[in-house]
Design a protein around this nucleic acid. Structure first.
Lengths: 154, 154
DNA sequence: GGATATTGCTCAGTATGCTGACTATCAGTA
DNA sequence: TACTGATAGTCAGCATACTGAGCAATATCC
């Protein structure tokens, strides 16, 4: 029988497990309490002010039922705001707060450091190749998860 | 600012997300109700009859607090058994049931198929290279997560 | 042999991630 | 305009993962 550790799915889980641990350690050491998921959401809100929750979810490939809780926590921490949209009364427009911007700015070195640490076993060239292969695999499988990556609609 | 989609951590999360979705779809289509985590645990119990929970957790890099619930569900489904150890009264010895063995045997084609599908964007050579790079990265980061991979002790 | 440290397991609490269902609202059409 | 379908968001429920704490039992050291 094939060893679990030779299965792509198992390696995927393990890589993600280490990536999250490294992120939390680096960000925690820097004095911040933000998860990888919360960071990605906050950075994307900053880059696209006023976007709604479904669009945000699509940009970072989160499930729409997951994003609700993530935003709840960002709002609760005072890093983001949720407002009713004037154009569509079903939608909520998301904004980053000044506190959120400050946090993002100060947290960036720790986030970058985490990305380096999680690839520390590879040479620079190998790291790029890993990124390329992951991109390619993910692009081919994008529609296979309930929460695929989506572009901005205009 | 760097795009989320260019960060190793984000690619790790996305690859894992797709891997799980593909696994559940293939296994579900084959008529089984087993998660990737439950499958890995069950296969490892079969390969190492009588092992205790901490050893099992080490072999597949699960946290010891996570493995409790996973085994609960395997036992509840009648696929595994948990017995008190005679040598160490703290420990529980794990065994696979006949039903568990039958399930593993019949589920294998779906599991293999899932591993192929999640790499379908890559050539055979690229797939092998991805596996090699993931192995290398994971080995270098093994001790960075709370639940590192461990060998069998003797 | 007795104090101390370690280990195996469990539990409470929190954060993703998913399925499936539901409400409110919007968009398109007959 | 009334009907139909799609969409934005939420909720309940379940399964990983983790932190930190605690209990029981074993190992170690003086």
């Amino acid at each position: 029988m094939r060893d679990n550790n030779d299965m792509p799915g198992h390696l995927a889980r393990r890589f993600q497990q280490i990536a999250v641990a490294v992120f939390l350690a680096e960000v925690g050491d820097a004095g911040f309490d933000l998860t990888p998921v919360q960071y990605a959401a906050l950075a994307t809100i900053k880059a696209n002010p006023g976007l709604d929750q479904v669009t945000l979810a699509g940009l970072i490939a989160y499930d729409r039922t997951t994003i609700t809780g993530v935003i709840d926590r960002l709002v609760q921490k005072g890093l983001a705001e949720r407002r009713a949209s004037s154009r569509d009364r079903r939608a909520r427009e998301l904004e980053i707060t000044d506190e959120g911007k400050r946090t993002l700015r100060k947290i960036t070195p720790a986030v970058d450091s985490a990305q380096r640490i999680m690839l520390r076993g590879l040479s620079a060239k190998e790291g790029e190749e890993l990124m390329r292969l992951l991109h390619k695999t993910i692009a081919a499988g994008n529609e296979l998860s309930r929460a695929p990556l989506r572009d901005m609609q205009a």
